[in-house]
Computed example of a mutant assay.
Amino acid sequence: MKKFSYSFLASTSFFYWRILWGIGLLGLSACEKVIDIDLKDSESKIVIEGNVSDQEDTHYVYISKTVPFSASGTYNPVQQAVVDITESVSDSMIIVGGIGLKTERTFAEVSPGVYQVTHFKAYPGRTYTLHVKVGDEEYTASSTMPMPVMIDSIGTVTDDFFGDDGKTVGVVYQDPPGVKNYYRYLVTLNGKPTNLVFAYNDKYNDGKQVQRNLYHEDLDLKKDDAVMVEQLGVDEAVYRYFNGIQSNNPGAAAPANPVSNFSNGALGYFSAHTVSQAATIIQ
């Protein structure tokens, strides 16, 4: 699974001030000198990626730290964290001694920075809270799993792009009326998961039958490609996170980090979601 890591690396104004200062010194000297630009590394931040779904009973949490500008590596796993998940059920669903039922499980570290819990089934309508402790710092995120929305059909969508036929995949589903729904899509191409981000809400199609065409400039589909789509039903906070990634302009001078649902300044997200899958061969 692809990880994300975000870090604001250096102060732009500081960077340009040092350049101008160095050029000034160079102009005053008759001999050549090396201009030493002192780039400041940003503070390392915790990045947490956690998911539980209604289709699996084994779930994973990935914990790392952002990598400083001067570092040579790209992934910095966090080991020996304490990771727990709590399930809360409202009083209207299950009552135990007059209090909503709560269960708690602990994740085990199965490889550096990768934490796993097994035999843990998650259910729609319940709220899950992930607790992560790294040293003396604690991070918490909650996610409520929505009711599932199933894919009704899947197929090839062909459009004309400047005289050339472009192909993508489309799914059809019935959006529930009167309920705010948020969707995230995962696309697997010829058995290989892509890292493309698709996030949508039902603001303009509440209660309607929807055909969602998954267009992306990096999704280059050809005839006979095998495509699997997973439609995830997510809550609003998780939608905002992935919509933030989707909306970031790669050409921006300082793209913003997507809004995390974790406390205490951690980056990343925790999602409790439903899953509906469908597969097709591109025609």
Rank of each mutant, 00 (worst) to 15 (best):
N248I: 02
I154W: 11
V210R: 09
V132F: 02
V117Q: 02
S42W: 09
R126T: 04
K65M: 02
K102I: 02
L232C: 10
G135E: 09
V134Q: 09
D206Q: 13
Y200M: 02
E230Y: 13
V234F: 05
V157Q: 08
A237C: 04
G73C: 03
A71Q: 07
T129D: 01
G125F: 11
M145D: 05
L20F: 08
T188A: 03
Q55I: 13
L39W: 05
I95H: 04
D36H: 15
V259C: 04
Y185E: 10
V149M: 00
Q231K: 14
V82W: 00
E49I: 07
F161S: 13
G22K: 05
Q116L: 12
Y75V: 10
V89W: 03
N261E: 00
E56T: 07
A122F: 02
I151R: 12
K222F: 07
F262Q: 07
V34E: 11
L20P: 04
T140V: 13
Y269G: 03
G178A: 09
H59L: 05
K167H: 11
V89H: 08
E236W: 04
Y182G: 03
D91Q: 13
A81S: 02
S271A: 15
H119P: 00
V227I: 15
I48N: 01
E49C: 06
I282Q: 07
V197S: 01
T127D: 08
H119Y: 04
V96P: 03
V172N: 10
V169T: 10
F107S: 05
G22Q: 12
V197C: 11
A122I: 02
L189K: 14
T86C: 02
S42R: 06
D84R: 11
N261K: 07
A279Q: 15
V132H: 05
Y200Q: 12
V132M: 08
F69T: 11
E138I: 09
R105K: 09
N181W: 00
L267H: 12
S153G: 12
V82L: 08
D159H: 03
G98S: 00
G163V: 08
L221R: 06
Q209K: 15
V82R: 09
Y241F: 15
I48M: 06
K133G: 06
C31N: 13
K208H: 04
A122S: 15
Y16S: 09
V179Y: 05
H216K: 01
F198N: 02
N261T: 00
S72V: 12
E137T: 04
T74W: 08
N51V: 14
A108S: 12
R184E: 04
E87K: 14
E43L: 14
A199T: 10
S5M: 10
L39Y: 13
Q116W: 00
Q116A: 05
M145S: 04
Y269E: 06
I37P: 01
K65A: 00
V169N: 06
A141C: 13
T103F: 03
P258G: 02
V187W: 09
F107R: 01
V47H: 08
K203L: 12
K40C: 06
I19K: 08
Y269K: 03
V169D: 05
V229A: 06
G24P: 01
N195E: 06
G155H: 12
S263I: 06
K167R: 14
N213D: 14
G178M: 01
